[in-house]
């Protein structure tokens, strides 16, 4: 997500479209990105793996100058983790 202090013109464009859909009561829209990284079979999202993903997030996936990020682990139905 863009940091709160960084103007998000894309979010503003979405916000300005809301009245056309008859939606009211929403005063702000921020647009962000979500990446889904699928781990190979047998790779567990333990400390070392998470540390590597965290590094990826901070260097490639997000630009910490303008963006905040968070890393979350989710289990999928076939028991894989991502």
């Amino acid at each position: 997500m863009l940091k709160p202090e960084i103007l998000d013109p894309q979010g503003q464009a979405v916000l300005s479209a809301l009245p056309r859909l008859g939606v009211s009561g929403i005063v702000g829209v921020r647009q962000g990105k979500r990446f889904e990284l699928e781990l190979a079979d047998g790779v567990e999202p333990d400390g070392a793996v998470l540390a590597r993903v965290e590094h990826l997030a901070a260097t490639l996936l997000a630009n910490p100058v303008i963006e905040d990020y968070e890393v979350r682990v989710e289990r999928t139905a076939d028991s894989g983790a991502r």
Binding site: I6, L7, P9, N63, V65
Partner: peptide, 17 residues
């Protein structure tokens, strides 16, 4: 250069898109 950290700051979507 900004992404590589050689220059400070970042370049984002133009105002007005």
């Amino acid at each position: 250069l900004c992404e590589a950290g050689l220059l400070p700051g970042a370049l984002t979507r133009n105002v007005g898109l």
